[in-house]
Design a binder for these strands. Structure first.
Lengths: 185, 185
DNA sequence: ATAAACTTTCAGTAATTTCTGAAACTTCTG
DNA sequence: CAGAAGTTTCAGAAATTACTGAAAGTTTAT
């Protein structure tokens, strides 16, 4: 598992970015290595290539599997397990979005729902609750929408994205197009 | 600056989530406090309410200003500076997205562009470059699209989100609607 | 210009997160 | 079923990140 200079640069960079993307350096590096390598890689090869301990490698691979970014791949006749990306780039990006939503939005939604159940004790609290409610609604819209977009599937999603400023124009024509449905406020 | 139990819960939670949202605990708490408090708050009040050092408070406020989530507010007749949210909830959410995009996507795009300039040294590198190119294109689409969406402004964006599954149907009619333009692959 | 009111900086310390490596565990193989 | 091949766990060490508080810096009022 020799890393070419190009791959090394990319792997290092993904390591640096790792923490911003929700995992740590090592996990970022492992992910990059697995994605950029056409052949399946064993845990030992990962440890060697990145020069990290076998234990750390194991934990990193476990985390990547929990994010559903990497999966095991059994090679017939081989004793050890190999690892490969869990899908194409689009799929991986989707998984990262989804997983982050779970970690970054869902817990907050849940807390907000709870806090909004109690009657406000006074003026100050009433005001705060109003704000919290706004936040809750916003997060809810985002969640619902991101699910919607995922259901569109890669091709349509891509079409939508490439539509660019056309989106604005389409919205203006929306009511003619979809009469009666989805009339908003 | 008494914190009611409700506000305390919310502030603590935003503190915990802080690190997942790209800043640290204290910064998350300060943000929640400022957003949930109708009146402007001074740095000293923030420090007292959250029971953190004055120095840390200063740094946290500075970071929130760099994210453009909080702004100074001068109260006539008062010597010290007060702080208020930099806009409504929608604006703040937008700012968080934008700022995170800058920190999480832009640096990677830039590196990928560089790595794609060099000719591949061999088969292996050619393959890796192909993957990197896919990633680059994906990030580019996301970036372009998020700018597009921001330009729509809150109302239209909201309409679009609430459209739900209507989006799929609209895409099917797209070509009739916007003839000639934006034909996608 | 001096002093009072307030803010920022930053070196050192504390808290948190990540990593190592040895021990425990789990297959497989003959 | 012994032992070889491979994996996981986890306590402690290392690295990173966040926080404090005292000193330096600003601004405003007199």
């Amino acid at each position: 598992m020799k890393m070419t200079p190009l791959i090394t640069s990319a792997v290092m960079h993904f390591g640096e970015m790792g923490s911003r993307w929700g995992f740590n350096r090592t996990v970022g590096q492992i992910l990059a290595l697995i994605v950029l390598n056409e052949e399946p890689i064993s845990a030992q090869e990962v440890a060697d290539a990145l020069n990290i301990s076998r234990g750390n490698t194991s934990m990193g691979l476990k985390e990547l599997q929990s994010w559903r970014l990497v999966k095991q791949h059994h090679v017939p006749g081989e004793r050890k397990e190999f690892f490969i990306p869990a899908g194409d780039i689009w799929t991986l990006a989707n998984r990262v979005f989804e997983e982050r939503r779970k970690r970054e939005i869902d817990p907050t939604m849940s807390l907000l729902r709870d806090l909004l159940l109690d009657a406000p004790a006074n003026e100050k609290e009433a005001n705060a609750q109003h704000k919290l409610n706004e936040i809750h609604d916003l997060l809810e819209s985002i969640t619902a929408w991101s699910e919607e977009l995922q259901n569109l599937g890669p091709e349509k999603l891509n079409t939508l994205m490439k539509l660019g400023s056309g989106v604005g124009r389409m919205l203006e024509l929306k009511d003619k197009l979809l009469p009666g449905k989805n009339s908003v406020n």
